[in-house]
Design a protein around this nucleic acid. Structure first.
Lengths: 338, 338
DNA sequence: TTGAAAGCGATACCAA
DNA sequence: TTGGTATCGCTTTCAA
């Protein structure tokens, strides 16, 4: 094809390729006149530098990767928004990889990215055993990583999270204050650090408020929505069922609503519910759902900013720093007093 | 750095770079023995080919781009899921670009991608005047595009949409059947082909059922949520307010709910509402929202599949074909008869 | 101020 | 069956 590249520009202008290259990068030792001519022709022919040649030469891809467990989720999609925002401002490209909570897939993707395809990685861990080889490999590689939301405890780098322990404590205390005595906790795998923090908050609140800790009130869910529905159904069908529920994940709060509807349990009269959630329609649910809402957009932004800061100092090791952005408890009808 | 590249492998094995390259690509004219040795060392050193060198040489990036107006949206995030699914199966990488309904940004992004950075593009148009130079440029370039959902009327290529006209007709007829007589239509910019189709469906249903068409019942919204809220507020505050609303966009249905709540209008007794929506919690809203639901995941998949088919026949011009996937009307309480 | 040429890493052609 | 080398397009060092 009649590709527009430096050679082509150089030929048309009777200049050397190197001259054209320097003119385009506004090098100081090229005359104004030449620069003008070059820029004019480049514009006219709509010259776009070949990104691969550039990346190959410069060892920099102007691209970051975002690895996350899922995307059809109000938290993650908004977080991506924040990330993309910062990336566009820095003229970077954003690659997306979804692990679907599959650890093997996560490992494969990470391996795929260790060859320089991206300059940095933003990552939210898949469920399953947290720490495995691929994260170590990442850390040993030259590719900087910033974790957000579902962070790794063991890898030393920048992490952006919300105040999970406090939020768990707050949500549980809120339920107790509103009159719940038997509080269930719905959680995902339980391997993730953030889950553990939220649960610790729940436990500590239960204990501090003098309530009895009951193992059967902790429901560990998985990737299978139907199974989770069944588990929650069992929880609520028991004779001695909970009168309060703290869902550490949005989807589990929704399932709890569905189960209550199925069993004709009234919210909040029979069961009060609070959930971690970024659902924009939380206030329109029936009844409106009390939520712990994470600053998703901000978390994405901060994670991306931290990554770009690291990219500017390529020879400095990533510092081990945790940025905590506060979540908000937004009280609605699902936890009203009886 | 001590990068692992072909040269390094070749040196360690006392072979030529070209031999190593062919051994790794399982070329038939390399001896089994050599292949084994090469593969073993490559594995041991965790050799990953440099993607840029490869792309530069092969003129193929193994990457596609997805350009869309927004991502924090149940339709688009699920569609991306479908796209990513197919891309991963094809060992392709996915770049994401969000235009935020900004036509200029869309044009900039498209220009950025004409230099071979991606092998193909999946695109859902930003609002604003539909057809402008950047799309033409795209069509003239060698980069194949497939449109999904918000497609271009004028560019000839594969397009994946839902049955917009029919759905608009169906939604409106449904409102009429349930007793609405004065039906408002909430739409976005109105420039997009899909919006026009939906509106045509609405109009034709209104006319066919012998209702009066009223210009003031067509509310054209924009990117500004507060302004839209005001517009809808005015609509419902009028003496002769509508008793049925068809929202052609999810976010407008949500706004309608909020306005009704503010004005103490009962749904469905005072106003019935149906909206295009992929909200997973539609059934939990108060009241449950009747929706026209698009097969988002499928649409993403089909668009991606069509793109990959095109990528396999690089010298064939994209055919002008429209794939229509049907949306479903899911009836819920927001349109119950009085 | 400009030009020539080396080199980034992988591929493919031609030669041996 | 293997080796040598040109090439993709761009950047940068060295020379003029």
């Amino acid at each position: 094809m009649n590709q527009v590249n430096l050679k082509r520009l150089a030929q048309e202008l009777n200049l050397a390729v190197s001259t054209v290259s320097r003119a385009l990068s506004d090098s100081y030792d090229i005359s104004e006149e030449t620069k003008k001519k070059v820029l004019a022709l480049a514009k006219k022919l709509n010259y776009q530098p070949n990104p691969f040649a550039r990346s190959l030469r410069n060892r920099s891809s102007k691209t970051i990767a975002v690895i996350l467990p899922e995307i059809a989720n109000n938290y993650f999609s908004v977080a991506i928004n924040g990330i993309e925002d910062v990336a566009q401002a820095n003229n970077y490209h954003v690659l997306i990889y979804i692990t679907h909570e599959n650890l093997q897939k996560e490992a494969d993707i990470v391996k795929l990215l260790l060859n320089g395809r991206v300059d940095g990685i933003l990552m939210s861990l898949s469920g399953g055993s947290e720490d495995t080889g691929h994260l170590k490999e990442l850390q040993d590689s030259k590719v900087p990583v910033v974790f957000f939301d579902r962070v790794s405890d063991t890898i030393e780098t920048v992490k952006v999270i919300t105040n999970n322990f406090e939020s768990g404590y707050l949500a549980t205390s809120h339920l107790i204050t509103r009159g719940s005595q038997k509080i269930a906790y719905l959680t995902f795998s339980g391997d993730l650090s953030i889950e553990q923090q939220r649960m610790k908050g729940y436990m500590e609140s239960v204990t501090n408020r003098g309530l009895q800790h009951r193992e059967e009130f902790i429901v560990r869910c998985n990737n299978n929505s139907e199974e989770n529905y069944q588990k929650i159904m069992e929880l609520f069908s028991a004779d001695d069922r909970p009168d309060g529920v703290f869902a550490s994940v949005e989807s589990l709060a929704i399932l709890a609503y569905e189960v209550c509807s199925e069993l004709n349990l009234r919210i909040p009269e029979d069961v009060k519910i609070v959930g971690f959630s970024n659902l924009r329609t939380a206030s329109l649910l029936s009844p409106a759902l009390t939520t712990i809402t994470q600053p998703a957009f901000n978390m994405g932004q901060e994670a991306a900013k931290a990554l770009f800061e690291a990219l500017e100092k390529p020879h400095v090791k990533m510092e081990n720093r945790t940025i905590v952005l506060r979540s908000n408890l937004i009280e609605r009808r699902s936890t009203a007093s009886n």
